[in-house]
Nucleic acid binder design. Structure first.
Length: 801
RNA sequence: UGGCCCGUCGUCUAAUGGCAGGACACCGGUCUUUGGAACCGGCGGUGGUGGUUCGAAUCCACCCGGGCCAACCA
């Protein structure tokens, strides 16, 4: 497959590259993976590990493993150990950079005293409920705490006494003094410290005040000189506090910055610790490493190779949009890795006895069977005992075969893999009518599976010798929860009732466990496996990839886990089924797939007002804006939409009018301002720009008189937005004067066509969309100085001849 | 009556104003001693409406849809 996507850049790597290029961090790249040791890591964490450690590797930096253990009530050393095992197993190494947030408590405390001294933090003695109420709501501002204006001395005294253990839990908290009316709820005086008299697994009872995430995390990053603090998208609202805390605790640029990405959501995987914990506690799974779980430990136990998880991470990529990855993609990654590694052996999961009637009792021959098919470049074979009585898969025989069935049927032939072609002569049934045995004859001329004389034998099936097969327990895994495919929080379920507003209701996750998520089968396996190292991963031919369960199957017991089923394109009777079900009698459960939103439902036929509500209100309150709105339309001929945007605030209009003073083309200047200038703001307001309306007007004038193309003018505008300056001087400095010389342009055009012979041919064959490519190339070569219209005309002329 | 973020084939993702590309899935075909693998081909997409531009997935406006935020969790 293509590696393009796997080595490709993503928006976070591009930011790292930009910071490297600008020298912002002096060439350093430091990332970190910061789990809280309160549970096992899952596949979502695994992709985060790949991202953080991968970036460090790629850019010659380092990645820290830091345990974010700031909450004494949930954390446990068992998880510290397990998390390290998981990361190492995935193939990553933090070297000497192992850290614990709790080791920073003293430094964090000092920073907090600093905030208090600077008047930026205060001790709030309201009860929890009062603090919560005071915060306001999503639509209403909060109110100041009555303790908000305590003196520095009082705050310091109280905070020190909080630390010394003088107060019970909940008596006081330390809060940042930010803004109780902030639109971002998290900025409404966030709680920085709380009192908790609890035993910390690492710090014991040294502390009874504990810092909260928003205060602690950014400091941890800063203490460790982290450059790029990567987290998932739900922490986006927390970025403001991250920056606020570092800003006010003395960390100057270059300091760490937070970057968010969407993280992984995997179909059929239960990904929250909150959901997994109860299942483990209730004994509905065998532990955090139950192979039906999506924890790293579970995949490891199941037999998934770590390369497959890394491969999945590369395939899925990195973005900010909500992402739910199909399970099939993970299955593909697993098979892709295992295909070239796993020796093929035979195992019958649902046995049916076959007697070869033209073989004498006690017949035995050892066949030499290669471990790998010819398309896998690996050596090796084993002896395979063949005798008079064999097991075959029950699903490989059909008395009344559906259309397209290529296996054994009454009177039909099939090849036994590595052995002989057999014919089914007789079907033996019990009183109940169930098939108990097949009586077949073999063709001795087909040893090794050869079909001499151009004979076509379509089907090949796997088998084992009854007398030599070993019994094994085989475990097949399916989705743990019923209806887990819809991506909803597995601990809640929407009732959908109109009476209760469809609010999600807590539901006992243990009731949703699918009893068929684990199917245990007594299988017959060829004897060679008993001589293999127990950690061998096999392909049981035609059935799937398996290995011995590391917990229950490594001593004398043969217990195999199915890692993943084979991909199968066989659809019995034209219907839909999976290879696993046809091979092992696993019932089919329809898979759900869910798209994002209902796209068809967005069709609107009612014309919508193209005028912003907020701006209309602003005009109602301000006569100047109101006057401008009508004047811009009636006197200057602007569209309603442009007039609307230009009367959002007075400043926009002032900017516009200043530009007009330099270049009297209201419609043109408005277009520049409304689309291009606003496009460059990127969170800033017009007042933040290092240039004003006069510069915009001058630039527009340069375009109007043909000194510079509009395309090049956009580059000038971008430069203006960065550093200001005089448009005319910038045009000269950047070498963007419009290209008036047609000979020169002609040369560029010829050069472009010569550089793209294949595309020229394609264009001439009818793909006229390619004109965009050619014009684009001409513009690129000329740095935007060429007149695109002239260039286009020239190109079309040349392409026609 | 809030703020912020996100909408590209069924799914994940690329295109940084200039060729809408790749992967998975699906459907054909070739080959095959695994209904596997490999190889070849096909299917199929910029949420909508306007605007700016020679040119818009990309910039602007409005609309629609989805997500996050009111723990003394992380």
């Amino acid at each position: 497959m293509s590696e393009q996507n796997e080595t490709g850049s993503d928006f976070i790597r591009r930011r790292v590259e930009a910071d490297l290029a600008s020298g912002r961090y002096g060439g350093r790249v430091v990332t970190r993976f910061p789990p809280e040791p309160n549970g096992y890591l899952h596949i979502g964490h695994a992709t985060a590990i790949c991202l953080n450690f991968g970036i460090a590797e790629q850019y010659g930096g380092r990645c820290h493993l830091r345990f974010d253990d700031t909450n004494p009530e949930k954390e446990d050393p068992e998880y510290v150990r397990a998390i390290q095992d998981d990361i190492r197993w995935l193939g990553f190494d933090w070297g000497e950079h192992l850290y614990f947030a709790s080791d920073y408590f003293e430094k964090m405390y000092e920073c907090a005293e600093g905030l208090i001294r600077d008047g930026l933090a205060y001790v709030d003695s309201q009860p929890l409920e009062a603090i919560r109420e005071g915060r306001g709501s999503l639509t209403e501002p909060g109110v100041d705490s009555p303790y908000r204006d305590r003196s520095v001395d009082e705050n310091l005294d109280l905070f020190r006494r909080m630390r010394s253990g003088e107060f019970p839990d909940g008596a006081h908290v330390l809060r940042g003094k930010i803004d109780m009316a902030a639109p971002n709820m998290l900025m409404r005086d966030p709680v920085l410290y709380r009192i908790r008299h609890a035993e910390h697994y690492r710090q014991g009872d040294r502390w009874c005040i504990y810092p909260l995430y928003d205060y602690a995390h950014c400091l941890e990053d800063a203490f460790e000189d982290v450059t790029h603090s990567i987290c998932t998208i739900e922490f986006e609202n927390n970025r403001d506090i991250y920056d606020w805390v570092l800003e006010h605790t003395g960390f100057e640029e270059p300091r760490p910055h937070q970057h968010e990405w969407a993280g992984l959501d995997l179909e059929n995987a239960v990904l929250s610790k909150r959901a997994i914990g109860p299942l483990v506690a209730a004994g509905l799974v065998s532990g955090w490493d139950d192979p039906r779980l999506a924890t790293i430990a579970a995949y490891r136990r199941r037999g998934v190779p770590p390369e497959a998880i890394r491969k999945l991470a590369r395939m899925v990529g990195v973005s900010r949009s909500g992402a739910r990855t199909e399970e099939a993609k993970f299955d593909f990654a697993i098979r892709e890795v295992l295909n070239t590694q796993a020796p093929r052996v035979m195992a019958v999961l649902d046995p049916l006895r076959v007697v070869i009637t033209n073989l004498p009792e006690g017949h035995l021959e050892d066949l030499d069977a290669a471990y790998f098919p010819s398309d896998v470049a690996r050596e090796g074979s084993r002896a395979l005992p063949f005798s008079r009585e064999l097991w075959i898969e029950r699903s490989d025989f059909e008395e009344v075969p559906p259309k397209g069935f290529r296996r054994l049927v009454p009177g039909g032939e099939v090849r036994l893999r590595h052995a002989y072609v057999i014919r089914c002569d007789e079907v033996v049934k019990n009183e109940g009518g169930a098939i108990t045995e097949l009586r077949c004859s073999m063709d001795p001329d087909t040893k090794g599976g050869a079909a001499p004389g151009g004979r076509k034998v379509k089907g090949t099936i796997h088998w084992v010798s009854v007398a030599h097969a070993v019994d094994a327990e085989v475990r097949l895994f399916g989705p743990l929860l019923e209806d887990a495919g819809d991506g909803s929080d597995p601990t809640t379920v929407a009732t959908g009732g109109a009476q209760d507003g469809g609010e999600p209701v807590e539901v006992d996750i243990t009731e949703r466990v699918d009893p068929e998520s684990l199917i245990v089968v007594r299988a017959k396996i060829e004897p060679s496996v008993t001589a293999d190292p127990p950690e061998t991963r096999y392909q049981f031919e035609r059935t799937g990839y398996f290995w011995r369960d590391p917990v229950d199957g490594r001593m004398d017991d043969l217990v195999f886990n199915r890692i993943v089923a084979m991909k199968s394109t066989y659809r019995p009777g034209g219907g839909v089924a999976k290879a696993d079900e046809s091979a092992a009698g696993v019932p089919t459960r329809p898979k759900q797939s869910k798209g994002r939103g209902d796209k068809d439902s967005t069709v609107t036929t009612v014309p919508k007002p193209q005028v912003g509500e907020g701006r209309a209100i602003a005009r109602e309150e301000d006569a100047t804006l109101r006057d401008r709105f009508t004047r811009y339309q009636q006197e200057l001929g602007l569209s309603r939409e442009h007039a609307d945007v230009l009367t959002r605030t007075r400043r926009v209009g002032d900017f516009f009018e200043a530009a007009l003073a330099e270049h009297d083309d209201p419609v043109g200047v408005a277009a520049w301002l409304v689309t291009d200038v606003r496009g460059l703001l990127d969170g800033r307001t017009l007042g933040d720009l290092p240039f004003g309306g006069r510069e915009l007007g001058r630039l527009a004038a340069l375009v109007a008189n043909g000194s510079v193309t509009r395309r090049a003018a956009k580059d000038v505008l971008a430069r203006l937005a960065e550093q200001g300056g005089d448009p005319r001087a910038l045009v000269a400095e950047m070498g963007l004067e419009a290209l008036a010389d047609t000979d020169q342009l002609s040369g560029i055009v010829d050069g472009v066509l010569a550089a793209w012979p294949g595309k020229v041919e394609e264009y001439r064959a009818g793909n006229e969309n390619l004109i965009g490519l050619f014009v684009g190339e001409v513009m690129k070569v000329s740095k935007g100085a060429a007149d695109p219209r002239v260039a286009r005309t020239m190109l079309i002329e040349r392409l026609r001849s």
